[in-house]
């Protein structure tokens, strides 16, 4: 039978079927589900992250590995009762009101997800009150706001203002992104961070989560 060590390799290879098979077999043999996640699946995605940083692996491959890891985690989770599933932090993310563009936001979501964050993606055209409701419900450490249009950038400030009015501002860090957005704009509206691309967005979130 394949071992926990093999699971790591299957995640690196993005072989979703073998990850599922092996996880199921290990669980059936009575292996500890947390050990499967922490010693089998997560080291795989960490290695993928390292290879990506070194330039030997590309984002689509990282995404496929992340899907393989998640398939394993989902199976293992079913066997865990009460225990906390380890993650890097929760982030509520969305494209602000009036804006339908989600490619950049989705990239950030996928990459955060692949890096072990619990991502609550609210989608596009998200009004401020929906962000507030999500912060109350999910208690994230970070709120991520995206805009592609210069005309919808002011809606980012509206979310920050709404967080202040609801006395939630000091409980979360707000990070913003999108083609017309800049560090200067982040400073202007009082956001906690800005990243110019998806990879740097992940680094930013890891730093401030």
């Amino acid at each position: 039978m394949a071992s926990i060590k093999d699971l790591t390799e299957f995640v690196i290879q993005a072989d979703i079927e073998k990850v599922k098979e092996t996880t199921a077999a290990l669980l059936a043999a009575g292996e500890d589900p947390l050990k499967i996640i922490n010693e089998g699946l997560i080291p795989g995605i960490n290695e993928v992250g390292e290879r990506f940083k070194e330039g030997n692996l590309f984002v689509p491959e990282m995404m496929m590995s992340a899907q393989a890891m998640k398939a394993g985690v989902d199976l293992a989770k079913e066997k865990i009762e009460g225990a906390d599933i380890p993650n890097a932090g929760t982030i509520v993310i969305g494209t602000v009101a009036g804006d339908l563009h989600d490619i950049g936001k989705n990239l950030v979501s996928m990459m955060l997800d692949s890096s072990g964050f619990n991502v609550v993606d609210l989608g596009v055209d998200v009004p401020a009150d929906k962000f507030i409701a999500a912060v109350k419900e999910h208690k994230p450490s970070i709120v991520g706001l995206s805009a592609l249009l210069t005309t919808t950038m002011p809606a980012m400030k509206e979310v920050i203002d709404a967080l202040k009015e609801s006395n939630l501002r000091d409980q979360v860090k707000v990070v913003i992104g999108g083609a017309p957005v800049s560090q200067a704009y982040a400073d202007e509206i009082g956001a906690d961070g800005y990243a110019p691309d998806a990879a740097l967005a992940v680094e930013l979130c890891k730093k401030i989560a």
């Binding site: 330039g55 590309f58 984002v59 689509p60 990239l107 691309d197 998806a198 990879a199």
Partner: peptide, 8 residues
């Protein structure tokens, strides 16, 4: 096209 290393 998206550069798959930098996402640019």
């Amino acid at each position: 096209p998206l550069d798959m290393r930098t996402m640019v």
